[in-house]
Lab assay of single mutants.
Amino acid sequence: MIVFVRFNSSHGFPVEVDSDTSIFQLKEVVAKRQGVPADQLRVIFAGKELRNDWTVQNCDLDQQSIVHIVQRPWRKGQEMNATGGDDPRNAAGGCEREPQSLTRVDLSSSVLPGDSVGLAVILHTDSRKDSPPAGSPAGRSIYNSFYVYCKGPCQRVQPGKLRVQCSTCRQATLTLTQGPSCWDDVLIPNRMSGECQSPHCPGTSAEFFFKCGAHPTSDKETSVALHLIATNSRNITCITCTDVRSPVLVFQCNSRHVICLDCFHLYCVTRLNDRQFVHDPQLGYSLPCVAGCPNSLIKELHHFRILGEEQYNRYQQYGAEECVLQMGGVLCPRPGCGAGLLPEPDQRKVTCEGGNGLGCGFAFCRECKEAYHEGECSAVFEASGTTTQAYRVDERAAEQARWEAASKETIKKTTKPCPRCHVPVEKNGGCMHMKCPQPQCRLEWCWNCGCEWNRVCMGDHWFDV
């Protein structure tokens, strides 16, 4: 396979590697080409510095992935760790964990309700045991953590790749202090920090972006993250068709209702045909949960890209028209025109101005929308079919299609509260000796007794199943 190397943020060049090629071997190839010592090179990928003893497969490097290699003399205490030698983080029983690669970060837990604080980093599902597709590297999971809308060759929703760059020099040479644990960490600028490894760059702020994971991409090709779309790892039924499908869209209502993408497309087109989208002054033209839940309008309007190009163009047109109407304007009634106009409040005669090729020149009556006339309008008909009709959803289907309910059931079956801080902690095999993952707590306690870890627990039921 081919990976592209950008040395000291210059133009990239291809390097041929195998899945079992080590990072140090990659350094040696680059060092020979650039005429520099291999031990002064640092390989940066997806916000993480890659260790010498890791392989291309370990690092989730795919065909035509772009890695950054910078030349920086080692500072005291760094060289041993980078070589894969006596790194205290690798000691058996050590409590410190390697910062998780962005290629394996899962933010789907952050669609849980606000009262489930902490689960994004504490609760991990076991539903990723799908067998890898044919042709994928051994052991590589097909679980997708992110979804994007690819405006490039795909023109559809695709699995996405999370990447990070330095907000100062805009190069992907920043190593994160810690990985993101929720969508806010990724979507809110300057929320996460790190250290830029580019020479002479003092940058410390992280800037995240997404790429389409279905095809090789260049540095400049980015895609918009659709953070309401998630892999259906909890096997929730769709609120409309009641099938279990994946991926799904999880509405931001209190129940976190789930809808499959085909039904979401149908829901949007139906509402669009009836012009029953909601115009929100802050958000724009949007839709609420299909069950009509309060405070559930979709905030990231790129989710409506699921409509496809033709329907999305209609959505944008109707949204612009609705904006004009909300501002007190009118639409030209001549067939084939429909231009938005903003006449004076007491102006009865409205002319669709033909300047700049935008208007048709038609003069019409503001009251009856017919060709302009003197005197009273002959008839004014009330528009028919403008009443909002509820999208029919079966109550039982709505009850079963809740992301929140599956989460709470998982928590109930696989977790116990920490005796000190009461945060839910998952036990997935292993011994009875637990350690609270909350940095402010870190209590060592017994899963069996529910009390602080002691010699009695150690001698009596340390390794009970």
Results as ranks from 00 to 15, higher is better:
S19I: 05
C457R: 00
N81R: 11
G139V: 11
E49W: 01
T388H: 10
Q158F: 03
Q63S: 13
Q440S: 15
C268M: 05
D274E: 08
V5M: 03
T414W: 11
R256H: 09
R420V: 08
R245N: 06
T415Q: 09
C238S: 00
R51Q: 15
W74G: 12
W54H: 07
V224H: 09
G139Q: 12
E322I: 03
S384P: 11
F208V: 06
S10C: 10
K435P: 07
K413N: 13
R234M: 08
C323N: 15
Q252S: 12
T55L: 13
P113C: 11
Y391G: 05
I23T: 01
G152W: 14
C182T: 10
D86F: 11
C418V: 01
C365G: 03
G338M: 05
L61K: 00
R33P: 01
A134Q: 11
G375D: 14
Q171G: 10
K416Q: 09
V393P: 08
A379P: 08
T55F: 04
M192T: 05
E96M: 12
V290H: 00
P37R: 10
K412I: 12
V380S: 08
N144F: 06
T55M: 07
R402V: 08
W445E: 00
G179A: 12
V67T: 01
I142E: 13
P73S: 06
Q155C: 09
E96P: 11
S193V: 12
V244K: 06
A38P: 10
Y147N: 02
S286D: 00
S131Y: 10
R256E: 04
V43P: 00
P216Q: 09
F209P: 02
S198T: 13
T388Y: 11
C451G: 15
H303F: 03
L176N: 03
N428Y: 13
R305W: 06
S141C: 09
D243V: 09
R271G: 06
C446D: 00
C337E: 03
N448C: 07
L287H: 02
C337N: 03
C253L: 01
P419Q: 04
C436Y: 01
T351N: 08
A46I: 02
V393Q: 06
S9T: 05
S296D: 00
F146E: 00
P137N: 13
R348D: 05
G94F: 13
F146V: 04
N8I: 01
I236R: 08
R402Y: 03
F364E: 03
